[in-house]
Simulated scan of single mutants.
Amino acid sequence: MIRVLLADDEVMIRAGVAAILATDPGIEVVAEAPDGVEAVALAQAHRPDVALLDIRMPRLDGLAAAAEIRRTVPATAVSMLTTFDEDEYVMRALAEGASGFMLKAADPRELVFGVRAVADGAAYLSPRIAHRVIAKMGAAGLTRRTPGLDRIAALTPREQEVLGLLGEGLSNHEIASRLFLTEGTVKGYVSAILTRLDLQNRVQAAILAYEAGLVHRS
């Protein structure tokens, strides 16, 4: 069962999102918060698998709440669910450690799929913004400090292989199946990659994989 914390300052939005998630018997909304402060407190109390946060909330916005949840409850994956897809919001969310960025206007099936993907350890961006984010961060942010090939040279061949599969958007389970490893072993590789390369999340790892030539551009 995937346990979800839902935070949004609009009651009707929370009710609608909860109803959509309830269509999947494998997902349970365990707590709801009307603002960022309560979202952090509930995440610490319930330790959900996924925290689904709006960006614009009173007292503490979703971006700040995401950073605090990632700091204090690192096992909880964070995804933003918002009407705003401006580049500034997307970049800040990813910089704060969010693994997903979904839009409220998207197909309800995308919401369920995105929550499942993030819970499974994958990164998920709404298709509408995915290519834009990769292009922008790859060109202007993440890899400017050191060329991609130089950065991944610190990794073992197996870690580079895992990084390439992260770049393809595969979850831990899918990587394990592809490489004939246990899921726990893959999680260990992913953690080592993020730590060694000083990356905040799997989205940044995927971008670096593209920049280093580990993934063929479509």
Score class of each variant (00 low, 15 high):
I55G: 00
I27R: 12
L149I: 13
V186R: 04
L63V: 11
R132S: 13
A95M: 05
G114R: 09
T83D: 07
A39V: 12
I129E: 04
H173Y: 05
G36D: 06
L179S: 04
R196I: 04
E159R: 08
R132I: 13
V17E: 02
N172D: 11
A105Y: 07
T83Q: 09
I129R: 06
A153I: 08
V37T: 12
V133Q: 04
L60C: 06
G213R: 01
I152L: 10
R56H: 14
P147R: 07
G184M: 03
A45Y: 04
F113T: 13
R202K: 15
A19F: 01
V40W: 05
G167N: 03
A75G: 13
M102K: 05
A212C: 12
A119Q: 07
E168N: 02
E38S: 07
G167E: 10
L170W: 02
V40P: 03
V190M: 10
Q160H: 09
A77E: 09
V162S: 12
Q200E: 11
I27S: 01
E32W: 00
T72Q: 11
S218P: 15
R92W: 08
A67C: 05
D54N: 07
S99L: 15
Y210Q: 12
V30W: 06
R132W: 05
V112D: 04
V30I: 15
D198K: 14
V4E: 03
M91A: 12
F101P: 10
D24V: 06
R71G: 07
A51T: 12
Q44F: 01
V50P: 06
I134V: 15
G114L: 08
S171W: 01
Q160Y: 00
S191T: 13
G148D: 04
I13S: 01
A66K: 09
D9W: 07
Y124K: 14
M1A: 13
I207C: 10
G167T: 08
T146C: 02
